[in-house]
């Protein structure tokens, strides 16, 4: 039988990271399912994207400080100090610069 579990368990482990986007306001984002790209968009910051799956590289972004983890393996070319927001999530407070 399928039953719904209460959501309280989820909110207990809520983790919040601070995202600082060069040239825009900083915002806070909860550690959840959403990609970094989605968080940036949700805060009304214009960001370039195409595929949203890590293979086109349109959302290539400079990571100035902090760390991210990838949900899908990025196929597009990125430099050592760059990330693909469409397929990663922050794992610490981060400071980024959109191109």
């Amino acid at each position: 039988m399928i039953s719904r579990r209460s959501n309280s368990k989820v909110s207990e482990k809520l983790v919040i990271y601070r995202v600082r986007v060069e040239g825009s306001d900083s915002f806070q984002c909860a550690k959840d399912d959403k990609t970094l790209l989605k968080h940036i968009e949700d805060h009304g910051i214009e960001v370039h994207y195409h595929c949203r799956e890590g293979y086109c590289g349109a959302c290539r972004t400079k990571l100035i400080q902090g760390e991210v983890e990838y949900i899908t393996d990025p196929l597009a070319f990125i430099d050592d100090d760059e990330i693909l927001p469409c397929c990663c999530k922050p794992t610490s407070d981060i400071h980024i610069k959109l191109y």
């Binding site: 195409h50 595929c51 293979y55 086109c56 590289g57 349109a58 196929l75 597009a76 070319f77």
Partner: peptide, 13 residues
């Protein structure tokens, strides 16, 4: 367009 995006990725690599 989806295919061309991946072709572009390969030449960039």
């Amino acid at each position: 367009a989806r295919d061309e995006n991946i072709h572009l990725t390969s030449t960039q690599h």
